[in-house]
């Protein structure tokens, strides 16, 4: 028990005064000294070591009154009150005030159920405000995230450019895009076309026509397995870099991506490097006059399965 303010102080021989102040140690959070007002003879600072016993209204010292008179006089200027300094957590350890300072507890607040009810009713009312907004705000923010796919055919050139079989030829084309509220702009893209021999065709199609489906699962185009023209998306399926048709020391003429050195053969199959899947095929149409058209598609890079994003 901590000594209470205003309690009487008894020495071994007689009563000497009362506790006028209490000094606490900011580090240990304990009472370090008592200030005893010596019945009109000034104040003395008494260390707690001299205290023998503490009760509600009495502090018993083990020293004599003359020893206490000889102790250090109390100098107020050496100390500050807790109103003048911030010592974290100290207030929790103070129990020196006799009695309590009280204010009336309002009659209406005594009912715990009432408090709980209105607290919860506040949350429910908040639900009426917040919940209706969730869906519209989500859709608002998600508007451009899943833009519908454009399945328009783009003319990219003439097959006359492709003279050699099983060799990659780059076709560059322009595509008009309109992003949100910006004016229509043109971007340049490229694809790699290969005039395929039957062996390469077999490697690519493996006996099945290649179907391209739209978002709802309907077929928009089928690349027939006997049409000898292949179109590969100009972006490497590893991380989207533009790749080239180059002569490799060991593997011969291949598609080579300069970013991370993925290597593909003329059928798009991965020969070497970190590519997770073969080159992405695009729908291709060649007219009787030799005009080549493709549907511009882009696929998610870095994944084993093919997911169309544009």
């Amino acid at each position: 028990m901590q000594p209470q303010l205003k309690s009487k102080v008894h020495c071994s021989d007689r009563e000497v005064g009362e506790v006028s102040r209490v000094i606490m140690d900011p580090l240990s959070h304990e009472v370090s000294h008592l200030v005893v007002s010596m019945n009109g003879a000034g104040e003395r600072q008494v260390p707690m070591g001299a205290v023998q016993a503490v009760t509600d209204d009495l502090v018993q010292l083990r020293t004599s009154s003359s020893e206490v008179m000889g102790m250090q006089p109390f100098n107020r200027e050496d100390y500050v009150t807790l109103h003048e300094v911030e010592i974290p957590g100290l207030e929790k350890h103070i129990h020196v005030t006799p009695g309590e300072v009280l204010v009336p507890f309002p009659e209406l607040e005594r009912n715990v159920k009432r408090r709980a009810f209105f607290a919860n009713l506040t949350y429910v009312t908040g639900l009426f405000i917040g919940l209706p907004l969730v869906y519209p705000v989500m859709k608002f923010l998600m508007k451009p995230m899943y833009a519908p796919l454009d399945n328009g055919w783009l003319k990219i050139g003439h097959i006359g450019k492709m003279k050699v079989e099983d060799a990659g030829i780059q076709f560059q084309y322009k595509r008009k895009i309109k992003e949100a509220y910006l004016h229509e702009a043109e971007i340049e893209k490229n694809v790699w076309l290969v005039k395929a021999s039957p062996a390469v065709l077999e490697k690519v199609y493996q006996g099945k026509d290649m179907e391209f489906l739209n978002a709802s699962g309907e077929a928009i185009w089928t690349n027939k397995k006997d049409v000898p023209f292949l179109a590969f998306s100009g972006k490497c399926p590893h991380l989207g870099c533009a790749y080239k048709w180059r002569k490799h020391k060991v593997l011969g003429q291949v598609f080579l991506c300069p970013c991370h050195l993925s290597i593909y053969d003329a059928s798009g199959r991965v020969l070497d490097g970190p590519a997770p899947r073969p080159l992405d095929m695009l729908p291709i149409q060649v007219s009787a006059a030799g005009e080549v058209q493709i549907i511009d598609m882009e696929f998610k890079a870095g994944t084993k399965s093919q997911t169309r994003i544009v």
Binding site: A116, N120, L121, V124, L127, P132
Partner: peptide, 16 residues
């Protein structure tokens, strides 16, 4: 209280 609050929350969900 529980019933009332649940009912009100349910109403909030339905109306939303």
């Amino acid at each position: 209280q529980g019933w009332m609050l649940t009912a009100l929350s349910g109403a909030a969900v339905v109306l939303s």
